[in-house]
């Protein structure tokens, strides 16, 4: 703890994860994320990208290693997980909006119930956030009445309502029709420009190249290679990554 670099928001050391059925999803993974950094994670299906992201806010337990977020050990039994999770926003591939609530109520729920902030304040902030993701006019709509792109933008607003210090995105555009991918990436890009710390699992190479400070390649539960986007995409010094990028370009 004493030699911790204060710039580091996330510090994962030697993390391994084995599922109950024996699948080894993460093998000795170490990772750091600095404040204000945008990190993109790519890799083939089943390589452990989602699992890695989900261990960062303890949605998934780990078998070995240690993960620190803001200096708190996430997988320590004594840590107040609920408080820690308020600092880590998460956006899911399937949006996971609460279908029985309006967009506004989705954004307001956690600040009201977890942070116990006064309703007027929460409402004002929720309306601001919906405006920020371009959905001021959809505040009273239920998720079923929104397009996929709109739902994902509400989900981003919902996570931001907790004022997290880092945002985790797990393939936020993979479930979207192609014409809606852009609007979600725009919101994420704006967020990155504001200086939000972000970990983004994505297949959108264009986004990674344009927005990321660092890109990370995972395969078979390991971080195989990481570099700044220009070097990563244009001159990868790793055979597995070369093959992977080659396959992607073909499609």
């Amino acid at each position: 703890m004493t030699d911790r670099n204060p710039k580091l928001l996330i510090e994962a050391n030697g993390v391994s994860k084995q599922f109950a059925n024996g699948t080894q999803a993460l093998k000795n993974v170490s990772l750091t994320v600095e404040r204000g950094e945008v990190l993109c994670i790519i890799g083939p299906s089943g390589s452990g990208k989602s699992t890695l992201l989900r261990t960062l806010n303890a949605l998934e337990e780990i078998s070995e290693g240690d993960i620190q977020v803001n200096g708190h050990s996430v997988h320590n039994r004594k840590v107040d997980l609920n408080r820690l999770r308020t600092q880590v926003g998460m956006v899911f591939q399937q949006f996971n909006l609460f279908p029985h609530m309006t967009a506004l109520e989705n954004v307001m729920l956690a600040p009201l119930k977890v942070l116990k902030q006064p309703e007027a304040e929460v409402r004002a902030r929720a309306e601001q956030l919906l405006a920020k993701v371009g959905l001021a006019d959809k505040a009273q709509s239920h998720p079923a009445q929104l397009s996929g792109g709109q739902q994902q933008r509400v989900a981003i607003a919902r996570a931001l309502a907790m004022k997290p210090s880092i945002m985790l995105f797990d393939e936020p555009t993979s479930a979207l029709d192609p014409e809606m991918v852009g609007e979600v990436l725009e919101v994420m890009k704006a967020l990155a420009l504001e200086g939000m710390t972000m970990c983004v699992v994505t297949h959108e190479m264009g986004f990674a190249r344009a927005v990321a400070h660092r890109v990370l390649f995972m395969d078979h539960g390991e971080i195989v290679y990481q570099d700044a986007p220009a070097a990563f995409f244009d001159a990868p010094r790793n055979e597995r990554l070369k093959t992977f990028l080659g396959q992607i370009l073909k499609n």
Partner: peptide, 18 residues
């Protein structure tokens, strides 16, 4: 109820009972 609902709620810092 879809599994993702509980995960989304927990990821926002809500407790299990909440």
């Amino acid at each position: 109820v879809a599994r993702g609902q509980m995960e989304a709620a927990r990821s926002l810092g809500m407790s299990y009972p909440q």
